[in-house]
């Protein structure tokens, strides 16, 4: 009897001597890693360092390091900055919630429709992404503007209202723009999650005596939670860090963290303080997402 040597397995177990040779696929990550390092990680570290520098009135920063920027941000007398941080989080949560309740029915319909127009509907959902954010905001400005916007002009012309209704430069206008522009980011993950739910599960629920409502609340929604999780995190993160939409539709009337940070950096030239605020926003956002994921994962037992 001769022993047959499994050539391939043997070679793999022993390795060929070179670590790189055995893990060649890792090389595929290099371009992305390089990009992340150069344009995300290094600037971020730079920002953190900047946030600990001393402020100065005549230069970008004064020599030496201290936590004075953070003390200013947290212990300001009328809690101005913490209030804006809180408003930003509430704004993020509100926009996310609205996107969820508007987007869910759309996603469900898209996932389940047998219409031959399905791809057209799909295109409608994606279409906001095809036009730049700035262009879309100007579109909203034309419609919403307080003096001579389309809605206010029309209503005044037909005598429905005497003076204009404030439709922008307030939370309403910013919220509207945010929900409109971030809706696809909610619908797409939801669509994927709902499509992966076997329609037979809905039929099974019905055969067991569940009404349409019960089927949705007890079977479809719980099973779509991975999509809900992904969509809500995406929209929340996009909202709390958005700058263009709030500034165009809200001006400085709607003050959230990103507008505040830019104000400190560009207008006031307070780079260390701006950096501290930006870092606080990042950490708060990340913490909110972390606890949210931990909390929601509890309801996802048995799924995937």
């Amino acid at each position: 009897m001769t022993t047959i040597t499994p050539i391939v397995d043997d070679a793999r177990e022993k390795g060929t001597g070179s670590w790189l040779r055995d893990n060649r696929t890792l090389l595929l990550l290099l371009p992305t890693l390089g990009l992340f390092l150069a344009f995300l990680l290094i600037p971020y570290l730079n920002m953190i360092v900047m946030s600990f520098r001393n402020p100065s009135t005549s230069q970008v920063f004064a020599p030496g390091f201290s936590a004075v920027n953070y003390i200013e941000a947290f212990f300001d007398e009328d809690l101005y900055y913490l209030q804006i941080l809180w408003d930003t989080m509430i704004f993020g949560a509100g926009t996310t919630f609205l996107c969820l309740i508007i987007g869910y029915p759309v996603a469900y319909h898209l996932a389940r429709t047998k219409s031959r127009y399905q791809s057209l509907l799909y295109a409608f959902v994606l279409s906001p992404l095809l036009v730049g954010v700035v262009v879309r905001c100007y579109g909203w400005i034309i419609i919403l503007a307080n003096q001579d916007g389309l809605i206010n002009m029309t209503l005044r012309k037909y005598g429905v209202i005497e003076t204009f209704i404030p439709l922008m430069y307030n939370t309403f206008g910013v919220g509207l723009g945010l929900v409109h522009i971030f809706l696809p980011f909610m619908i797409l993950p939801l669509l994927g999650a709902i499509q992966s739910i076997d329609p037979a599960l809905e039929e099974a629920a019905q055969s067991l005596g569940a009404s349409r409502t019960k089927t949705m609340t007890r079977v479809v929604f719980p099973l779509s939670l991975p999509g809900v999780q992904a969509g809500t995190v995406l929209v929340f993160v996009l909202t709390i860090s958005s700058y263009v939409i709030p500034i165009l539709l809200g001006g400085l009337n709607v003050m959230i963290m990103s507008t505040l940070v830019v104000q400190q950096l560009i207008d006031a030239m307070l780079w260390p303080f701006g950096a501290a605020l930006a870092f606080i926003l990042s950490v708060t956002g990340a913490a909110a997402v972390y606890f949210y994921l931990k909390f929601t994962s509890r309801f996802m037992k048995g799924i995937a």
């Binding site: 076997d198 037979a200 039929e203 629920a205 055969s207 005596g209 099973l223 048995g302 799924i303």
Partner: peptide
């Protein structure tokens, strides 16, 4: 409606609710 017929149905792929014990 199906939920009012009092039927028991077994599906080809079982259709057990994966998120329930």
């Amino acid at each position: 409606d199906p939920e009012k017929r009092n039927i028991g149905m077994v599906f080809q792929n079982y259709a057990l609710f994966p998120h329930m014990t």
